[in-house]
Design a binder for these strands. Sequence first.
DNA 1: ACACTCATGTAAGCTGTTACATGATTAA
DNA 2: TTAATCATGTAACAGCTTACATGAGTGT
Lengths: 199, 199
Amino acid sequence: MTDRTSGLRYVVLGLLKQQPMSGYDIHCYLKQLRWLISSPGGGSLYPLLHRLLREDLVTVKVVPGIDRPPKKIYSITVAGNEALKTWIEEPISPNAPLKAFVLRLLLADSHSQAGLCARLQQRRVQVAGHQSALADGLDTPATGQNLGQELALDYGLALATAELAWLDTKLKLLRDRPPFDEDERRVRSTQRLRSTSAS
Amino acid sequence: MTDRTSGLRYVVLGLLKQQPMSGYDIHCYLKQLRWLISSPGGGSLYPLLHRLLREDLVTVKVVPGIDRPPKKIYSITVAGNEALKTWIEEPISPNAPLKAFVLRLLLADSHSQAGLCARLQQRRVQVAGHQSALADGLDTPATGQNLGQELALDYGLALATAELAWLDTKLKLLRDRPPFDEDERRVRSTQRLRSTSAS
DNA sequence: ACACTCATGTAAGCTGTTACATGATTAA
DNA sequence: TTAATCATGTAACAGCTTACATGAGTGT
């Protein structure tokens, strides 16, 4: 409901849904994504796993490693899956941080394509609102206008505009081709969904 | 140093630098900017002001209102100004949240133009890094590729690209016209710095 | 009478951070 | 030997959130 947290909880559940893994594995995986979402240290991760365990959203199995420290492999439970689904599908509050959206995108592999479309659509509405609010801010020289604020507004506006463009492109792509089945999804998506190019 | 906090502290100091105001005033002001930065409730604001007071970064003066509850008007101190300046000029860690950048932009009115350029430049480097990392992620189908992750990466890439374009435009604009004096700044900036247009 | 805005505050709690501790194995 | 990677954890604390409390005035 609040959407003000980083949602680390659900990132972890999402990863465990893809495959069971240890706290350390999660840590390494998230380090690779650190430019998309903030990655936690052990001090956040392990206590979190303990909490999830107490809440019965995950289970553990200790696997002794050969010539390695033993690992504690965590798996998601039915309750965990439900909690994750609930969170992913729950509407994002309009001024939640950008992460809230990316995160759901990231964890949406369990998502139906229709659900994904709905999510993008919802985002579109919010960004559009956001954008016009910024445009208003720029047009009214009312509130203490200074160079910094002006720049910040213009910056926000530029990013909002770009995001709208992206959303429209993807929505069109997703709508043009009706749902395909699970097996094809992976392949097709990697072939078709590219648009922007690097530097 | 950490850059992991929301920096509310410095937003407040920045506002108080522009003009002395009460906790409630700050609350209202920030509510208007809620699409750019998250705005705190009274439960965050008042304790924060008390802390700033204890740290001698601000001072208070109680102003009894006529037919209104009395206000506590806070003003920034010399120490407060220094703290703010230090924070604004301190380098942003590469994977700090987007807010960290916008915030400094927002509070940069006390900033020299050269400083602003440097800040944009620094951001450019970071976003470029960010962008190529994302591009790499998209090109290697290595890590658990799924539709959601693919979309998230593409999304990040699109936004990074747009941001780079914006940064380049602004940097060019700022470099083309050498520093103008304080009085002209306000007027000129509002005339010249626009680029993106609304819906 | 009721609710709403102005205006300030407290208290409990969650999340996450840093810094530290442990202990084994592997590479310089 | 020293350092680094693997792997887990604890403890202290910062920051923020929600929910609540208070109290005066204003409008319906």
